[in-house]
């Protein structure tokens, strides 16, 4: 699966998409590489709208049958929306990792985006990590 160019990536395998014109709102999910490593995802635990998340810090967990993994925030901000769909169909993350979003956040510091990886760099990073 190709890594969409319009997303920014973390070394912890999350992505963020900044889509609105103002650039204030970031949408967050996990990468195809992450979902493959996790296997069948059975549960996602996410913060509630209104909660604050901090770049590089855990904002939730994702579970397969026999593992729990932390989710790390690509950017800091306050949560404006949570993808409720994932409560009942977490398998969406396996099927469409780059569209099955988890959170939307109001980005606190747009400067943080600069330190994230581009699709190309992330792809290289994943290839390196696998060696």
């Amino acid at each position: 699966m190709a890594y969409p160019k319009e997303l920014k990536y973390t070394k912890e395998h999350e992505w963020v998409r900044v889509e609105d014109a103002t650039g204030d709102i970031g949408t967050i999910g996990i990468t195809d590489h992450a979902q493959q490593a996790l296997g069948d995802i059975v549960f996602v635990e996410l913060p509630k709208p209104g909660a604050d998340i901090t770049a590089g810090k855990s904002f939730g967990t994702v579970e397969s049958v026999k593992a729990v993994s932390e989710l790390y925030a690509p950017v800091s901000g306050s949560v404006t929306a949570v993808n409720e769909e994932l409560n009942t169909t977490p398998e969406k993350i396996n099927r469409e990792p780059h569209t099955a979003w988890m959170l939307k956040v109001k980005i606190k510091d747009k400067g943080e985006l600069a330190s994230l990886l581009s699709a190309g760099d992330y792809e290289k990073f994943v290839a390196e990590e696998g060696k």
């Binding site: 049958v65 026999k66 593992a67 729990v68």
Partner: peptide
């Protein structure tokens, strides 16, 4: 729902 348990989540 074993991810609640000690053999997976350990101190958490």
């Amino acid at each position: 729902l074993s991810t609640r348990e000690q053999h997976i989540r350990r101190e958490k």
